[in-house]
Simulated assay, not measured.
Amino acid sequence: MPEGHSVHRIARQFGRNFVGRAVAASSPQGRFAEGAAVIDGRTATAVRAVGKQMFLEFDDDLTLRVHLGLYGAWDFAGEILVDPTIASANGRMGQTNQRGTDLADDDPILDDAGENSLTSIGAPRRTRVHVRMSEQTTGLADDGDVWPPPVVGQVRLRLLTESTAADLRGPTACELQTPDEVAATIAKLGPDPLVDDVTEGEERFTTVVRRKPTSIGLLLMDQSVVSGIGNVYRAELLFRARQNPHTPGRDVPEETVRELWRDWVRLLAIGVETGQMMTMDDLEPAAYRRAMASRDDRHWVYHRAGLPCRICGTEIVVEEVATRKLYWCPNCQR
């Protein structure tokens, strides 16, 4: 499931390429045909992300709410105007996150698949993008100068400007909402460091966690408690705090709860900037390059079941908790 940093990056991509433009909307799959017909031809006026949900606003107070869920993804194609505040976000965003980064223009970092989609940190630019996905996924077809690109696979919603296409596949939620419905949806969500006042968010998060008998490992994944944290960030945040994931929230020391929030503020900012869930600090340049190129070198405990803890050497364990995998070190996180 894409975590908060990916959704914020997607929203910024829409902000640069769709907001202020008339948008053609269709539902090639047919499951969102009525909604697509309503927004077809309207102008996108604003976009925002809150946690794992994106809200794309159109004229006449209509908002498209998208929650990608476990399997959702956006595929972008066409002429992409890159947001200068983040690395280039062309290609697929969501289920398959962006990978790679640059330390210098002539020295790219590639991941294990040889991909490098984060080559424009800093200055905005226009680039022609044809997305060709691996054999395991489907994306917008690479058909030379054919425009719009042919639809491939089960596309719930296609949004199209004169030069940019975005195809939505497999979301948990794709619906139109009124302003009141948007407000009600957001009211149910916990604080998001990129949306809410950080200090107020810390107080709200701390107050909720400290009164809950639910384990801190489950609370961090509860979007009504805090927005945007998923399986990867949950495991890494708890390890960085040396916190046992099974401790009831009300028994976690207040300063630890506050530090979890502050660490989330830091890690989310890094994730939005780089497109990576980078959770290891103060790496030397060579180690940083390895980490950005491979998830195996990027995390403390996530996806490292059976491997020795990077700190104490104890075997990292994995448990099934509420249908999700929880990775942690039973020694460092006693």
Rank of each mutant, 00 (worst) to 15 (best):
P2V: 00
S6L: 08
V7A: 03
V7T: 08
I10F: 04
I10P: 11
Q13R: 13
Q13A: 11
N17S: 08
N17L: 07
F18I: 11
F18S: 05
G20E: 02
A22L: 14
A24F: 12
S26H: 07
S27V: 04
P28S: 05
F32D: 05
E34S: 15
E34N: 15
A36N: 09
T43C: 06
T45E: 01
T45H: 01
V47R: 06
V47P: 10
M54H: 03
F55K: 03
F55V: 11
L56N: 01
L64E: 05
H67Q: 11
H67A: 11
L68E: 09
L68I: 13
L68A: 13
L70W: 05
Y71G: 06
A73Q: 02
A73M: 05
A77V: 02
L81P: 00
L81R: 08
D83W: 10
T85H: 11
N90Q: 15
G94N: 08
T96L: 06
N97A: 12
Q98N: 13
R99Q: 15
D107Q: 00
E115C: 13
N116Q: 10
S117C: 00
L118F: 07
L118I: 04
T119K: 12
T119Q: 13
T119L: 12
A123F: 04
P124Y: 04
R128A: 14
R132E: 12
Q136V: 11
D143G: 14
G153C: 00
G153Q: 01
Q154C: 10
L157D: 02
R158C: 03
L160I: 01
T164D: 00
R169E: 02
P171Y: 03
T172K: 13
T172W: 13
T172R: 11
A173N: 01
A173T: 14
T178C: 15
T178S: 15
T178P: 15
V182M: 06
V182C: 07
V182W: 01
A183I: 12
T185I: 14
L189K: 07
D192K: 00
P193A: 11
D196C: 00
V198S: 07
T199R: 04
E200T: 14
E200P: 05
E202F: 00
E202H: 03
V209M: 00
R210T: 01
R210F: 00
P213W: 15
T214S: 10
I216N: 06
L218I: 12
Q223L: 12
V226T: 09
G230D: 02
V232D: 04
R234Q: 10
E236H: 04
L237T: 07
L238K: 03
L238C: 03
R240D: 12
P245L: 05
R250Y: 11
R250W: 12
D251G: 14
D251F: 15
E254C: 11
T256V: 12
V257K: 05
W261Y: 07
W264A: 07
W264G: 02
L268D: 03
I270S: 06
I270D: 10
V272M: 04
T274Y: 02
T274R: 06
G275K: 02
T279Y: 03
Y288V: 06
R290T: 10
A291G: 05
S294D: 15
S294R: 14
D297G: 09
H303I: 09
C312L: 11
A322W: 01
A322S: 12
K325V: 13
L326G: 03
Y327K: 01
W328C: 07
C329V: 09
Q333C: 09
R334G: 15
